[in-house]
Computed example of a mutant assay.
Amino acid sequence: MIYPNDHRPAHVHVIGGGCEAVFKLRCPDGPPELRENFGFTRKDLSEFSAALTKALGKLCDEWEHLHDDF
């Protein structure tokens, strides 16, 4: 989730199952970096990090579209 009224630096919220993690995207080149975690396992976080790395270009484009810069 990228919130349209959120603050910089570019980041995403991963939410589910009563848990939340926030990853800094480190646009435009990555790699994403875990900023905080509330309840996800290390395995979950590793999988999220891999998925975010694959989608980094699209996520950075979306952040820039919503916020004008990183």
Rank of each mutant, 00 (worst) to 15 (best):
M1G: 12
M1T: 14
M1Y: 13
Y3W: 11
P4G: 00
N5R: 06
D6T: 09
D6Y: 08
P9S: 06
P9D: 05
H11W: 06
V12M: 02
H13W: 09
H13R: 07
I15A: 10
G16N: 09
G16R: 00
G17F: 02
G17C: 08
G18I: 07
G18E: 04
G18D: 08
G18N: 06
C19A: 12
E20M: 10
A21R: 05
K24T: 00
R26M: 12
C27M: 04
C27V: 06
P28F: 07
G30A: 04
G30P: 02
G30T: 05
P31M: 10
P31F: 09
P32C: 07
E33V: 08
R35D: 13
R35M: 13
E36W: 05
N37G: 01
N37T: 06
N37H: 02
N37Q: 01
N37Y: 03
F38K: 15
G39Y: 01
F40G: 06
F40N: 01
T41V: 08
T41F: 04
T41E: 05
D44E: 14
D44P: 04
S46E: 13
S46C: 00
E47H: 06
E47I: 10
F48L: 02
F48S: 00
S49F: 01
S49R: 15
A50W: 03
A51L: 13
L52G: 03
T53N: 11
K54N: 14
A55N: 15
A55F: 01
A55L: 11
G57E: 14
K58M: 13
K58G: 11
L59V: 01
C60G: 07
D61P: 00
E62T: 14
W63R: 01
E64P: 00
H65F: 13
H67N: 05
D68L: 12
D69K: 12
D69M: 03
F70Y: 14
